[in-house]
Amino acid sequence: MASNQLARPYAAAVFELASASGRREEWSGTLAVLAYIAADERVARVLRAPRLSPDERAELVLGIAGDDIEEGARNLVRLMAINGRLPVLPDVAHRYEALRAEAEGTVDAWITSAAELDEGQRERVSASLRKRLDREIRLHCEVDPSLIGGAVIRAGDLVIDGSLKGRLERLTSRLAH
């Protein structure tokens, strides 16, 4: 079974709980912390150790997370440890964010550009995506000089490669055939 399928019921349960309590944003932060911990290779290696009991696995994650983790999240970690699902915490967080974005009518969009974008450029990209996707946009920007020029935009299933590097690769591919 794919890890996303294993994560789905946990994400759905957490999303239902977070929605009912009006704490979607807080749960986003909590799940991000737990996902970060579970994804750390050193922690993942220890979690895979066969000699640890489910309680010890849960306490390892919760000990690293610290005292700021609320009881509902502690119970989630314990349940996932009992079911041997702590390694899918990153997928639970990812699926939860997808459920939250759907419910709130938002989408995360990543723009990777060859150079830093100014505020006006970021706003134009956001406005264009908002119009095209009919959703509010949470824009995340990063710089990758290897793109040579232009940018690559990813929002959900949409990928727009307007980079010079992408254009050159497509041209090279066409010329090779």
Results as ranks from 00 to 15, higher is better:
87 P>A: 13
143 V>H: 03
159 V>E: 07
32 A>D: 00
54 P>M: 04
126 S>F: 03
166 G>I: 12
163 S>H: 13
23 R>V: 04
25 E>N: 09
157 D>L: 07
126 S>G: 09
123 E>Y: 02
23 R>C: 05
40 D>Y: 02
164 L>Y: 11
75 N>Y: 05
7 A>Q: 07
103 A>N: 12
49 A>V: 00
92 V>Y: 04
165 K>I: 06
65 A>K: 03
65 A>R: 02
135 R>G: 13
77 V>Q: 00
3 S>L: 13
40 D>R: 04
101 A>H: 09
41 E>T: 11
68 D>L: 08
160 I>N: 02
169 E>S: 12
150 G>P: 07
140 H>G: 02
173 S>E: 15
128 S>W: 11
43 V>M: 12
126 S>L: 08
150 G>R: 07
54 P>G: 06
139 L>G: 06
47 L>P: 01
106 T>G: 06
28 S>V: 05
9 P>E: 00
63 G>Y: 04
49 A>Y: 12
30 T>L: 03
144 D>R: 05
53 S>T: 15
23 R>Q: 15
157 D>N: 15
1 M>L: 12
35 A>W: 07
59 E>L: 10
148 I>P: 09
55 D>F: 00
124 R>F: 02
177 H>A: 14
110 W>V: 15
19 S>H: 05
72 G>K: 13
165 K>T: 08
91 D>W: 12
172 T>Y: 09
78 R>Q: 01
59 E>A: 10
113 S>K: 06
174 R>I: 07
78 R>H: 04
80 M>Q: 09
26 E>K: 12
57 R>W: 04
18 A>D: 01
139 L>K: 05
42 R>H: 13
36 Y>I: 02
160 I>H: 01
107 V>T: 15
88 V>W: 09
3 S>Q: 14
124 R>D: 08
125 V>E: 03
146 S>A: 08
